[in-house]
């Protein structure tokens, strides 16, 4: 039972990280229809931002802020430079553009930074664990859950109350009509990229704490899984993205905990296959809406 409780905490922690990433993807997709492959590079950028600020002597909290700010800036810049020219193009064109941006960025990291992992100092207290109701809980999973909850709560507040947040929710329902209501399209889109950059940065920091290093391809695998999570939740549905992320995280952790030794090597394959299997039952995702034709 204790073992299960511990795994449940891990599931929530990993699922929360996927949820943050999937939500970042969904915020952009719901407004632009863009599947942003370069989202993972934003995670990586956060890592490098942190490493270089620390190297420059910035204290740890300041370095974290630098990392997040850099990711937000890069997300907005990415939209301005690469995605605006193809904004009205087909979904495939936008997707491939983001694919190209992603390739350019990680090749640039390999050339101008290093192809090898760069160690990220992790605060010592994060290595510890504490006991709650007889269950040993690691500091990192607890922090992940806490940060995820705070980030999601902030977003909920933003979407419910802030004017830009409301405009974004409207835009995610029907962008064309929202523009007719006099909402500034560029501002809404820039805001969506800023939020997705922020979410990628937060997830990136949590990911870094687990791994202790940053390398050019760091963001690729988690973001790919976040894609799958977003698809499972229903592409474009913000709640669906969170749900999909939690389900994927839980599936992975439980497989890791309970799969027989011989099958552990197939863990990712089994998790992905299970999710794709779920999609047969829910072709539009768990919370996605089928497209209506008039």
């Amino acid at each position: 039972m204790d073992y299960f409780a511990q795994q449940a905490v891990n599931a929530l922690a990993l699922g929360g990280t996927y949820a943050l990433l999937a939500l970042g993807l969904a915020v952009v997709f719901s407004i632009l229809g863009l599947i942003n492959f370069a989202h993972g590079e934003l995670m990586t950028i956060t890592g490098y931002g942190l490493v270089f600020s620390l190297a420059a002597g910035v204290p740890y909290p300041g370095a974290l802020i630098c990392g997040v700010a850099l990711a937000v800036f890069c997300a907005v810049a990415m939209e301005r430079v690469a995605f605006r020219p193809v904004r009205r193009a087909s979904a495939t064109t936008m997707l491939l553009t983001s694919f190209a941006v992603s390739s350019i960025l990680h090749t640039a990291f390999q050339n101008f930074i290093s192809a090898r992992p760069k160690p990220v100092p992790v605060p010592e207290w994060l290595g510890g664990a504490f006991t709650l109701a007889g269950i040993q809980i690691g500091a990192i999973p607890s922090l992940s859950i806490l940060v995820t909850v705070v980030a999601l709560a902030t977003l909920v507040w933003f979407f419910q109350s802030a004017q830009t947040g409301l405009a974004m929710r409207a835009a995610s329902e029907d962008f064309a009509v929202t523009r007719l209501m006099g909402i500034n399209a560029n501002r809404v889109i820039a805001a969506s990229f800023a939020i997705s950059g922020f979410l990628a940065a937060v997830a990136g920091i949590l990911w870094l704490f687990q791994r202790g290093s940053v390398d050019p391809m760091m963001g690729f695998v988690p973001v790919l899984k976040a894609f799958i999570a977003a698809v499972l939740g229903g592409l474009g549905s913000l709640q669906g993205a969170v749900l999909g992320g939690l389900i994927l995280g839980a599936t992975e952790v439980m497989l890791r905990a309970y799969l027989p030794e011989a099958l552990l090597g197939f863990r990712d394959a089994i998790a992905l296959a299970l999710i794709i299997g779920l999609l047969i039952v829910f072709p539009n995702g768990l919370m996605g809406r089928p497209i209506q034709a008039r």
Partner: peptide, 25 residues
Amino acid sequence: LAIVKLSSATIPIATLGLLIIVNSL
């Protein structure tokens, strides 16, 4: 049987998932 049921927007991601599944298999 699974892939063709998905919408055109999700097929790129599901097929990428397939690539990763097969590679790890």
